[in-house]
Design a protein around this nucleic acid. Structure first.
Length: 420
RNA sequence: CGGGAUGUGGUGUAACGGUAACAUACGCGAUUCGGGUUCGCGUGACUCCGGGUUCGAAUCCCGGCAUCCCGACCA
């Protein structure tokens, strides 16, 4: 894409109402736009990142047996009354509104009810199980206080998968599979090294749930990390008994601030019971379906990547979720037609090889272009200038390391391949 | 939901109760051209909204709204 067509522009200064680093950088670089507290629109650059994160998650969900669908945002009152979660006394973060005919609807703040209600129509036999439907969806929560930029919003986009299994044993197998899938996802988006499998409170049906907690000051949770194994315990369940249970040593646990980027949760029959979600087993006996839930907030995940990987010059994207792989910067004045032509040629070559290139074809000074490029965080910068044309070379710079090299243009694709 | 702070051009800031200023961005011209050049000219703000005090309010008072921070809450 030509940068001259991109309507967003980098800003030197962040809006005064943003304190969180993730929001400051993402707004300055033109990835997101703040609509109101806790609500952000995704601009062209931001959407490209969001789509890539979505693709990574989708790949892992499908690999684990997930099947994608999409539940409705508008939810009717009766469905939620079955689990007693319609009443504002019980759930206070609903966004609710009325239909013309007077009926009440709510904007979904989670998906357990929707899935249980739908699946009741389709599950009747043990032969129908297990199934693992999931969706990507905008979720609405009327938080009394949103904070930390895009880390905790009132409207956010998430992936939620629900597992429907015959029994605990079958559930366990998938639960473990999801942990692996989550591990893969966080590795893929570049925060695996600071993301810890964390034991957290499990609710009614299991002793623990598992969270994936990424260490960053921008987080709101406290966790105790066992540095040897990388396993952590959420402060909410941290006590001597739990430590012993998990075979950990109190002395080797370190307290850190972290953000929950994903969780896996055993629900047991908490939702299948109120919906009477049952199946007939081989003996013709009716049994309640055993459920689990598995969520990842994509905006929070992106914000976390920014918090963890950015430096004093701006964002540093891992290639897997960068809006573009290459930032092609031409240093040409208005009358340097040859430089522009040379850049266009390289743009074509790379694009034809399937490499995503943002081509800065604007007539600006070098310093400004470089500063904006650093701020945007595209993994590889390639510079075409008079000097480079004379040498028949291209200068490249790796955003993450700052490494600069002069290379042959033909070498660029293989260099792009090797970047993380 | 409790507590605190703050609302001024698109953005970031200034202005004792007395003509709303500067930077940046934007437009035009010149200059410059590998790390946010330099200079000139210009456009752009009923100072969040509504009341009040005052000869006079961006400034003081009251109410509302919004934003941020701390706490509570957080399938």
């Amino acid at each position: 894409m030509r940068q001259s067509q991109l309507f967003t522009k980098a800003r030197k200064e962040a809006p005064s109402d943003e304190v969180a680093k993730n929001a400051q950088l993402l707004i300055r670089a033109g990835f997101i736009y703040k609509e109101m507290a806790g609500v952000y629109s995704f601009l062209p650059l931001g959407l490209r990142v969001l789509n890539k994160v979505e693709d990574i998650i989708r790949r892992e969900m499908n690999e684990a047996g997930g099947i994608e669908m999409r539940t409705a945002v508008l939810q009717s009152k009766d469905v939620w009354e079955k689990t007693n979660r319609w009443d504002d006394e019980v759930v206070d973060n609903w966004f609710k509104t009325k239909l013309k005919n007077g009926g009440e609807v709510g904007l979904s703040f989670t998906n357990e009810e929707a899935y249980s209600n739908i699946l009741k129509q389709y599950i009747s036999s043990y032969k129908d199980l297990p199934i693992y439907p999931y969706d990507f969806k905008s979720i609405f929560r009327n938080e009394s206080r949103s904070k930390s930029g895009i880390m905790r919003g009132r409207e956010f986009y998430w992936k939620a998968l629900y597992s429907f299994s015959q029994d605990e044993a079958e559930h366990e197998v998938f639960y473990e599979k999801m942990k692996t899938a989550y591990r893969n996802i966080f590795d893929a988006v570049g925060i695996g090294h600071v993301t810890h499998l964390t034991f957290a409170s499990g609710g009614t049906f299991s002793k623990f749930s598992h969270e994936f907690q990424t260490v960053t000051d921008a987080g709101e949770d406290s966790i105790y990390i066992d540095e040897k194994s990388g396993i952590a315990i959420n402060k909410e369940v941290y006590n001597d008994e739990v430590i012993a249970d998990l075979g950990l040593n109190k002395e080797s646990l370190v307290e850190k601030t972290a953000v929950e980027v994903g969780n896996v949760f055993s629900l047991g029959t908490k939702f299948s019971a109120p919906f009477d979600l049952k199946y007939k087993d081989k003996n013709g006996e009716e049994k309640l379906v055993v459920m689990g839930s598995y969520g990842i907030g994509l905006g929070r995940l992106i914000g976390t990547v920014v918090e963890v990987l950015s430096d004093d010059k701006g964002i540093v994207w891992p290639k897997s979720i960068a809006p573009f792989a290459v930032h092609l910067v031409e240093l040409a004045g208005a009358d340097d037609a040859d430089i522009h032509a040379e850049a266009e040629k390289l743009y074509g070559e790379l694009t034809r090889k399937g490499i995503e290139v943002l081509w800065d074809d604007r007539d600006l000074r070098a310093g400004e272009k470089f500063a904006e490029s650093d701020l945007m965080g595209i993994p590889l910068r390639a510079v075409i200038s008079k000097k480079m044309i004379e040498e028949g070379k291209v200068e490249i710079k790796i955003r993450a390391t700052g490494e600069v090299r002069i290379v042959d243009r033909a070498d660029i694709p293989s260099i792009v391949d090797k970047i993380n």
